[in-house]
Design a protein around this nucleic acid. Structure first.
Lengths: 339, 339
DNA sequence: ATGTAGTTGGTAATCGATTACCATTGCATC
DNA sequence: GATGCAATGGTAATCGATTACCAACTACAT
């Protein structure tokens, strides 16, 4: 039931050649006489030999493994990115070693270290904090090619692929402007998080420019449904409740919709709500969520591309790629005039 | 910017001892004089040395890595399981190397092989097919401790942790019975998939027992929202449309709800719909979905437990663990009498 | 003083591959 | 026939750790 380990030496003996020859046949590193090659292939098949990738990696100084660290796997946005990255990497001959930081910089640092100790050939990371994640990212980048994906730390010099949050938020604010709102609430993530900060900054700047048109309030917390629900409930209970919610991501928005309905409001008419990310849930919830689609495919593809570029040239200039977003209008916030 | 590789030899030279001593200090394998230990620690700190896990794994014949293969990462059920398994493994000192099979037995076989070649210490797998996945599972189990999670292949002799699907489906049928339905449609996954087969079998057996009470129809396809939508739409367009849908998982159910609303029916009153899994979406969709909760925490925890047990004794008897489910009643199918 | 046990530390083998280097052979060229 | 080159194959070094084994030393009892 338990098969014995078979090494390249065993194959060599069985085929009547040296281990060097076996290696050459298997890797194609050098030409080998047809007879020897045939003998090797026969022995490999007979013994059901499979090369030990540890030995190979040790000698070659390359594991063909890329590490990836995301803040969470609960937020469906990250699984999408992971999936794209995994496919892309696989097509280039790399495997993906996945870890999560649970949104905690200490855990994050530990996982980064773990991956580096395992000699990954590169690292894709979505740092959980703008500043607290910096030491880990900086140290990692010194040891291994590293690309930040979707979120970044507050520092230059590291590759990054993200989306143009200013553009995404602008398209939402423009949409909301057409509805002539009285008061707009922004419910966003923590400012010590890259996405949270960018989206908040964009909103604040646009709100200031339009302050004659509507009043605003801002609440910051977690990127979760529970927090969204709590924040929206609190806003609605205030003495000047908003008639539009712009949320930092789709999960917050779903919580907010729930809170609005709990307050007896018809979402999409009496109050409008928008999200950000366009996760699958946005399409399936009721009413369907108006949101900003992040180009997940490109995010993964470009990140892998940058990573491989850096792998072949450790000294290339750091690149910051900002991808375009797409406004997706559904029923939770429509363009038409309200009843 | 790029730091030089530093090996145990470098540390040894810097500390003025041999590499054996460094190893002993770092692993605590044997006692070492305080002076030497101090020198080693100083050198480690000065050089920022971190042991290369490849070298260690090669020598120790253990990578402390567990491989995991799931059919998909799009279905949020699997990320939940992954998350639990990852935490559990981590607490035992293992890392998780994750792969997906894209629901394709060929890709699955390839990934299994890849993980084994990388010398994982164990394998957690949710086989995508009952029969087509068998060869890969069998061969893998011969080389490495293996535990099936949530789904299994049609064969004895392999450890498995899953849920009692018969129980789950029974609780749904009992709920639906109380509503005195005229016709019940079962929309389920493919029979060549373990969950699909078990749930279907349970439904068919219960339907037969209750055939005097309601008529039934069965449609089988994919575990996706798109398929659920299509199947439900087709059913509703027939000349004897069902007034209750029991779906093979939550995604199918969400598609079915959408189809019912598209047909102008009020879900929860004119027609009822149930899911299976209790993914986060079930709580957030409208109307909230009545479903069967799988005990994800236990699933992950028990699987890891079984895997470690097998790691320490390769010849123990294979165990099949079936966990209990929990009926979660929400608005898409309530217990009360319908209007 | 001698034998014995317990510490401590170094040397070298080992894990399983790849590959630098050298030796041999065959063949073409002058 | 000598020379050069290409093709082929083996020996051994190498990657970076752990650990079996041996040597040296100390401490203590006899």
């Amino acid at each position: 039931m338990v098969s014995p380990r078979v090494s390249i030496q065993d194959v060599a003996s069985a085929a009547g050649v040296s281990s060097a020859t076996v290696s050459r046949v298997l890797t194609g590193a050098r030409s080998v006489k047809p007879d020897s090659a045939a003998a090797v292939h026969a022995a490999v098949a007979a013994l059901n030999y499979r090369p030990n990738q540890l030995g190979r990696a040790l000698r070659r100084q390359s594991t063909q493994v890329i590490g990836m660290i995301v803040p969470s796997i609960d937020n469906p946005f990250f699984p999408s990115v992971i999936q794209v990255a995994e496919r892309q990497l696989r097509s280039k001959g790399y495997a993906l070693l996945l870890s999560t930081s649970d949104d905690d910089p200490d855990i994050e640092a530990e996982r980064v270290q773990m991956l580096i100790d395992r000699q990954v050939d590169g690292l894709l990371i979505s740092p959980c904090r703008r500043s607290a994640s910096l030491p880990a990212v900086a140290e990692a980048a010194e040891r291994v090619p590293l690309v930040q994906i979707d979120r970044a730390v507050d520092a230059d010099g590291f590759d990054f692929v993200g989306v143009d949050d200013a553009e995404g938020v602008r398209s939402l604010v423009e949409l909301v402007l057409g509805l002539r709102p009285r008061r707009v609430a922004y419910l966003g993530g923590d400012l010590d998080n890259w996405s949270g900060a960018k989206r908040h900054a964009a909103f604040v700047s646009l709100a200031r420019r339009n302050r004659s048109k509507f009043s605003t309030e801002v609440k910051l917390g977690e990127f979760s449904e529970a927090w969204g629900h709590a924040a929206a409930t609190a806003s609605l209970a205030g003495n000047n409740p908003p008639d539009a919610f712009i949320c930092g991501n789709d999960l917050i928005a779903v919580g907010a919709i729930d809170a609005c309905e709990g307050a007896g409001l018809v979402v999409g008419r009496e109050v409008t709500v928008s999200g950000y990310d366009d996760i699958a849930l946005a399409r399936m919830c009721r009413p369907p969520l108006t949101t900003v689609r992040q180009p997940v495919d490109q995010l993964g593809a470009r990140a892998v591309e940058l990573l491989l570029a850096r792998t072949s040239d450790r000294h290339r200039k750091a690149e910051q790629v900002l991808l375009h977003t797409e406004l997706v209008v559904r029923q939770s916030m429509t363009a038409g005039p309200r009843a």
